[in-house]
Amino acid sequence: MNLHLTDIGSFVMSTLLGATPLILAAMGGVLSEKAGVVNIALEGFILAGAFIAVSAAHLFGGHGWVISSLMGILATVFLGLIMGMMHAFLTQRTRMDHVVSGLGINLLAMGATRYLYLHLYPNGVEVAGLDRRYFLVAALILPFLVQFLLVKTRFGLKLRACGEDPDSAVLAGVSVIPVRYVAVILSGILAALAGAYLTLGDAHNFSTDISAGKGYIALAAVIFGKWNPFGATGAALFFGFFYALQTRLQISSIVIHFWGIDLTNPFLMDTLPYLMTIIVLASFVGHTKPPAALGRQEVL
């Protein structure tokens, strides 16, 4: 196989683009989990964001791609906010188990998007979309913003305190629940934008399984990255690399057999990010410390 510079360039690009939705969602995951709220709901946020982005963009499809995409993004942000608020309400006000709430939100997103998609667009839907590179730039800047927010601002300090020890945070005068609301809402918006990338940026249409577990992978990236924005970005890039490799191997008819198993088979390649996640967690988690109060159902 001859590797040209352009090849390497396009490989890097497809790695970056593969990582883009993961980074967006993972930054949401970092914010939420640093504040102490487990966020399995990323998957549902992504799916809902993907759908609303395409529907709003389609609705304004006659006004040119700028207006259409802008409306798509705005609608995504709005829905992300609502869904984030929902997860915050369920986990903080009704004290639901964070995983249960997240699963419920994912099911809701799954059922509702499918229902609405079949109901509204029986013949499918197409949009002009938005250049993927806008999303990529956003995804590359975002980790720095999140890190700045967490370390340099008063709000970031409060957010970390809520994830480490909400009881003590209350005693220090922090209102824990509002802080967590903001964190989870931000995570809803960011993850929904990851969904917008999938439809507006990438596919230009919607399919009911478009999120394909990206929310879960993003959450794995958060843990893999030790709840640190840069770590999570690195993990997302790592997974992006595997996506790129997978695509590349599929195109290049290379076949690698090992004990009679076709390792380049798309199904087996597809297991890589999942297996890597498990392997990485099994070898790293012992040495990492999640936010101390992550997922706890405390009575404040």
Binding site: L90, R93, T94, R95, M96, D97, V100, S101, L103, G104, I105, L107, L108, M110, G111, A112, R114, Y115, L118, H119, Q297
Partner: peptide
Amino acid sequence: PDSIATVVQAVVIFFAGVRSPI
């Protein structure tokens, strides 16, 4: 669309999972 059944599942999960004293 039969995916309305999935929505019902979600709602049931929400109601069954609420732990608060409300």
